[in-house]
């Protein structure tokens, strides 16, 4: 099961490279079939109607095509990269705000950079770590994490929908986030 997932991920990395270098439409089609319905689901969850979500999902996928050459697997997994494009599209289109993006600026940003091969290994490690961290969360905490990332709802609306007191929602989410922090960053609470 895990191996299959890893193979899919490897296939998608090959596909995005083929889109970047060869403008390969078949490879893009495979990426489209995987990502477009998920990006649409993301936008639907945020509150976009079906037409708007469909339109924006197509726009996100068009950005994936145009920016394919900028994807750098030594920095993030493909899903992470697509997520950031979808998130920024949401802020831009649905919230009508700008999204300030950082670029490393500190003196050690370049000099401390590890060789590319090492960074790819590191990026894959991050992916595995994150997958494990999410997998280890109890079901109801994982659901709240999805709500935090994917919903624009206020927490009192979420509490109503889940039929839970507001305080419970807040403390559960805080617990989920701090667990995630500890697993991911080793940051003590």
């Amino acid at each position: 099961m895990l191996d299959v997932a890893a193979n899919d991920e490897a296939q998608r990395h090959d596909d995005i490279e083929a889109v970047a270098r060869l403008r390969d439409r078949e490879a893009f089609g495979r990426l489209f079939r995987f990502y477009a319905p998920r990006v649409k689901a993301y936008l639907r969850r945020i509150g976009a109607g079906d037409d708007v979500a469909e339109d924006l999902a197509q726009e996100v996928m068009a950005s994936v095509w145009h920016r394919a050459a900028q994807f750098d697997r030594s920095k993030a997994s493909l899903s992470t990269w697509v997520y950031t494009i979808a998130r920024n599209k949401r802020i831009d289109s649905l919230r009508r705000e700008k999204r300030p993006e950082h670029e490393p600026f500190d003196p050690d940003a370049d000099s401390a950079e590890a060789p590319r091969g090492d960074r790819i290994v590191e990026a894959e490690k991050v992916r595995a770590e994150v997958q494990r961290a999410i997998g280890e969360l109890p079901r109801e905490q994982a659901e709240l994490l999805r709500i935090f990332y994917f919903d624009e709802k206020t927490h009192s609306v979420i509490a109503d929908e889940l039929g839970l007191p507001l305080g419970t929602v807040k403390s559960r989410l805080r617990l989920a986030l701090s667990k995630l922090r500890v697993t991911l960053g080793g940051l003590a609470e």
């Binding site: 899903s79 994150v130 994917f150 991911l184």
Partner: peptide, 9 residues
């Protein structure tokens, strides 16, 4: 951000 990518998947 990787958490966002994984949740998207």
């Amino acid at each position: 951000e990787a958490v966002g990518g994984m949740l998207l998947e």
